[in-house]
Design a protein around this nucleic acid. Structure first.
Lengths: 328, 328
DNA sequence: CCGTTTCGATAACCCGGTGGAATGGATCGC
DNA sequence: GCGATCCATTCCACCGGGTTATCGAAACGG
């Protein structure tokens, strides 16, 4: 039982004759004759009565037609779907993000969904290490991780993230330069993410604190960034968070990015770090390529916006010219 | 999009590896590899991750699997159905019958349905001429008609039908010999089928009346045999009907076959005629062959019964040794 | 009544796809 | 480190299917 034969059956039935049907199928008439004959041999009876005016289906042919049509329809559907997969317009995409991609990943996903509504996309919150693991295992198509990433994964630098001070909005704002922030923090109660949840961020904070000799008093740990910010809002203490946290912070929390001066200042590595999208180049997927294109456009557009703002600062999300995203 | 590739997808997914899947599909492993590669080229992405322990589907593969399974299942179903068609175990059969097959056709259909429950069978009541037309046009697979039939149709003599007298059961029974019946009918009120409905039967009746000089008084015509018998029951008059009408007559109607003595008596052509199953040998159908086989067995069995009864009379339905089906 | 036309069927041929055997290459277990 | 066990690659032979050319039959039209 070959689908080609079913197509022949449907075509001849629809066109009412072998000649036109052959044209519709883009084959020669003898070929079509042979196809119908083959099908007739398979069912053991005539499918059409060949008359002067073309051919019309016998009862046997009529009995097979509905199922044949249905099958052909489904095959065509699946073929189209395969083509969509190939063009990246269908399928599924698993994107990981963590504290690093906390504001960009959802934007990218939203933009991607608008452009490719056929692709089911899942967004998973996980640490950079877990994302790299996931990308390697094939569970994730793309991850947004703190760079550097392992060399075996392809990467695209998406933005430069910086540390920021989260402090209650009703208090005096902290300084914006690294040295000032360190001094401001010294002895001050702070809240922090657990190392288990954000190993990269914790390491970054420790790096900053070591480099600038800030020695805050750690009064509370929390297992996610939202909670950290909530604790800050509650006045438990300040916190060092990624600047992107401004997007998810309550209005009563001030998020003040620390100036890093484009990485030229002393210890700027301790203040800012680069975030990249990573993926396994061995697992090529058009849907993923499309997603990466969207991400690229998104970062390019943002960079252009920043340039339009007149500031010469390098790509990064760190707010407007005043360097502070302030209280929202 | 080829079903063969979908089969490969399903097989590899089910077997968890190329080697065993190739065995299940009865192809070599390289062939299967190429099939999967072809499918992967079509969807533009890997369908399986080939590991040390066989292969397991990627998300893309998993996305395609359900539809692939469904399609393969339907194809197999249709293939099996085609095989059933070929064996005559599925399909549809249109059987025509008229006054001639009034008792045999339903029996044959019932027996056939028992043997081949997969075949949808339709039984249509129509005149011999209409049946021959239908068989020629392909609307009917088999017809039960009064012989002779046109030479271009195949035929199988099924039984010999005879004229019978239908008379009210509460009256004196008519004679059973042709001459006696003719005398009995002379001047007697009779009911008859319209010529339009049963042209063959009417011709037969006229032949009988002419041959034996019966000149009954036609008091009423009716458009079907049931009505004729009902009118007889109501005492409107007698009627000449096929002997098979005994099977459909009410208990208050006596149906007395006219003796024909195996066709040796004078004018036996006027009393009895042969009924045959006819079909178009150009339209071969296994279902029809099966039906004809059932019909043949049925007639053989009935003939054997009659022989067992000790009578040497030729094949025919005409009752037992007493030659009368009498009042039921 | 005979050509003409228009169907589908048949015959002969040819190409490309498809499968098979042998081999290679990678990875894991002992 | 060697063998075992997967899958991938290569090469080749075959056949299934398509095409072109032609035929046969049936319905017109002149």
């Amino acid at each position: 039982m070959d689908v080609r034969l079913l197509r022949a059956l449907v075509a001849v039935a629809d066109c009412g004759g072998f000649g036109v049907a052959a044209g519709r199928l883009s084959v020669s008439q003898p070929a079509l004759t042979k196809q119908i004959q083959a099908l007739e041999a398979e069912v053991g009876g005539a499918l059409f009565v060949r008359g002067r005016q073309g051919a019309e289906p016998t009862r046997l042919g009529l009995a097979l037609l509905p199922e044949a049509r249905e099958l052909v329809r489904r095959i065509d559907l699946l073929t189209r779907r395969a083509a969509q997969f190939k063009r990246g317009e269908a399928g599924s995409l698993a994107v990981g993000f963590g504290l690093s991609g906390i504001d960009l990943a959802p934007q990218a996903v939203a933009a991607f969904r608008r452009r490719f509504p056929g692709v089911g996309i899942t967004l998973e919150d996980m640490s950079s290490a877990a994302q790299i693991e996931g990308v390697r295992a094939g569970d994730l198509d793309v991850g947004f991780v703190r760079l550097p990433a392992p060399d075996d994964l392809a990467r695209l630098v998406v933005l430069t993230d910086t540390l920021a001070v989260a402090s209650p909005g009703d208090q005096e704002p902290p300084p914006t330069d690294a040295v000032g922030v360190a001094a401001w923090l010294r002895g001050r109660p702070v809240v922090r993410l657990t190392r288990a949840k954000g190993p990269g961020l914790v390491r970054q904070i420790e790096l900053f604190e070591g480099e600038f000799d800030a020695r805050p008093e750690l009064v509370q740990e929390a297992s996610d960034l939202q909670t950290v910010l909530a604790l800050v809002a509650a006045g438990v203490g300040a916190a060092l968070v990624p600047a992107g946290a401004a997007d998810i912070a309550a209005a009563t929390v001030r998020v003040t990015p620390i100036e890093c001066d484009g990485g030229r200042a002393r210890g700027s590595d301790a203040v800012s770090w680069r975030i990249g999208a990573v993926w396994d180049r061995a697992r090529a997927t058009r849907a993923r390529d499309n997603f990466l294109t969207v991400v690229r456009e998104l970062t390019d557009r943002r960079d252009a916006d920043i340039s339009d703002g007149g500031s010469a600062r390098p790509p990064g999300r760190a707010g407007g010219p005043d360097g502070s995203s302030g209280v929202r």
